[in-house]
Simulated assay, not measured.
Amino acid sequence: MTLFDDRERAFEAKFARDEEVAFRIIARRNRLVGQWAAQLMQLTPAETDAYAKAVVQADFEEAGDEDVVRKIYGDLTAANVDVDEAAVRQALAEQTVEARRQLMQPE
């Protein structure tokens, strides 16, 4: 039985690690896309940092990416930036790749 118990513990540990990595990738992606949007809105460096943190926090409102898309698109529209929702979704996709690259890169 210990072989099965060891195997079960290994699977549980792998699942926990995978979930942690996925969370870190999404948080990093949200920060990067917040910085992208802040640049479009021509925010100062301090405002950019605060805005990126706000985008990360916005992701905790509901499951999925819709809360982040809604926040960024709404803020860009309010700042009179000529961008559509598809561009925001494209930025999310691009920043997901970049976030994964940054986190998987050996230090």
Rank of each mutant, 00 (worst) to 15 (best):
A38L: 07
T44I: 06
R28N: 09
V21L: 15
D5C: 08
I25S: 04
F23G: 08
R28W: 10
R28I: 04
E8H: 10
R31F: 11
I26W: 07
R7V: 14
E19I: 00
E20H: 13
Q35A: 13
A27C: 08
W36K: 01
R17K: 13
P45L: 03
N30L: 03
L32T: 00
L40W: 11
E20N: 10
I25F: 10
D5S: 08
A37W: 09
F11P: 00
E19N: 03
R29G: 01
R17V: 05
E20Y: 11
M41W: 12
L43H: 04
A27P: 02
T44D: 12
E19W: 00
N30I: 01
D6K: 04
A37V: 04
L43A: 02
E8S: 10
R9Q: 14
A13Q: 09
F23V: 11
Q42C: 07
Q39S: 15
R24D: 14
Q39N: 14
I26S: 08
L43K: 06
M41F: 14
A37R: 02
R31L: 13
T44P: 09
Q35L: 15
Q42H: 09
Q35K: 12
N30S: 07
E8M: 12
M41I: 08
R9M: 13
K14E: 15
E19H: 01
A38V: 05
Q35S: 08
L32A: 00
T44F: 04
I25C: 07
